[in-house]
């Protein structure tokens, strides 16, 4: 649904995006992570045919962004950094307007509009001027606008940034539902917990270049190395005679625990358990050392900047 190759954008002598290759399939969520000004918005704007790439190409929903800008825009729903709401309109008028802009039939407009307002808890405030809405309500309405024409591709910039936890949860659920109904989503966010929960693929962009991309597991492995596991025993156990299988490395040994690094956990971990079980080890817990996306992100950024502020 979204594919780019060598996608680049130069503004005079400033390279805003440099050689971005992305591939997001139907039903996948790609999270684009990076600092402010890293090139996320420029990338999204190229994907919506707002900016013309200086180099490379991009296809969105089957259309070339340079040749079929009109079709690209018709197939994409975008939540922008600025929500772009008309303050003198009410929510009903606003969604009705965009429904008409995207060519929806009157009945479709009504049903989409009512459903979205209901889902996002805006039905009661639907006839109030948008200017009177809270920040969170405005963000929900902007998201409703992006979804109004039920697009196959959604490009969402900070979809929950101004929301209370309850509303944010509502939006996350909706994004997950959209994913399960085969929508392709690009999510730009600084909320790493949200990204961890939602994204299938993650791309980290720095100064216009993709530093790293892949699944969360791949990123963890690339940035932080092989996964590490702690094996906790119910009491003291002598591990002196223990022979680990190939692909596992013993890092630390105490009377009540072991710490191992594993190359291919799917294959190796069951073997370790089998060995421990055969030696009647009183295994109480076998768990992966916690490695969050935040650690991955900070490590990659630190490496990129050449600084060592990450512990």
């Amino acid at each position: 649904m979204i594919e780019t190759h060598d996608l680049s954008k130069q503004f005079h002598d400033f390279m805003a995006v440099d050689g971005v290759d992305l591939s997001v399939k139907e039903g996948q969520i790609l999270a684009l992570l990076g600092q402010n000004g890293a090139g996320k918005t420029t990338t999204v704007r190229m994907l919506t045919a707002l900016l013309e790439p200086s180099r490379g190409w991009a296809r969105v929903a089957g259309y070339d962004v340079m040749k079929n800008g009109h079709d690209v825009r018709a197939s994409v729903g975008v939540l922008t950094e600025h929500h772009g709401l008309y303050m003198r309109m009410n929510a009903l008028e606003y969604l009705e307007f965009f429904g008409r802009v995207y060519g929806l039939s009157p009945s479709m407009r009504k049903s989409r509009r009512d459903n979205l307002l209901e889902y996002f808890g805006l039905a009661e405030a639907a006839k109030r001027r948008i200017g009177e809405y809270s920040k969170g309500m405005r963000q929900k309405l902007a998201l409703a606008r992006a979804m109004m024409h039920d697009p196959g591709v959604l490009l969402l910039d900070e979809p929950t940034s101004a929301m209370d936890p309850e509303s944010a949860r509502l939006v996350r659920d909706e994004i997950a539902r959209l994913k399960s109904s085969s929508r392709t989503i690009v999510l730009c966010s600084h909320n790493l917990t949200e990204v961890e929960a939602l994204a299938d693929m993650i791309a980290i962009i720095y100064r216009g270049r993709i530093l790293l991309q892949g699944t969360l597991e791949e990123l963890k492995q690339k940035a932080l190395g092989l996964p590490e596991y702690t094996i906790q025993f119910a009491g003291a156990w002598d591990a002196g005679r223990l022979e680990l299988p190939k692909g596992a490395e013993l890092l630390e040994k105490t009377a009540t625990s072991l710490k191992v690094r594993v190359e291919a956990p799917r294959e190796v971990n069951p073997q370790i358990l089998k060995i421990l079980s055969s030696q009647s080890a009183p295994v109480m817990a076998f768990q992966e050392e916690a490695r969050t996306l935040e650690q991955v992100y900070l490590k990659i950024m630190a490496d990129a900047k050449g600084s060592m502020y990450v512990q």
């Binding site: 994409v76 975008v78 922008t80």
Partner: peptide, 14 residues
């Protein structure tokens, strides 16, 4: 200036 231009530019208009 009001930030309302982008949704309009993102819409399928020529």
């Amino acid at each position: 200036e009001r930030g309302t231009i982008e949704p309009l530019l993102n819409a399928p208009f020529d």
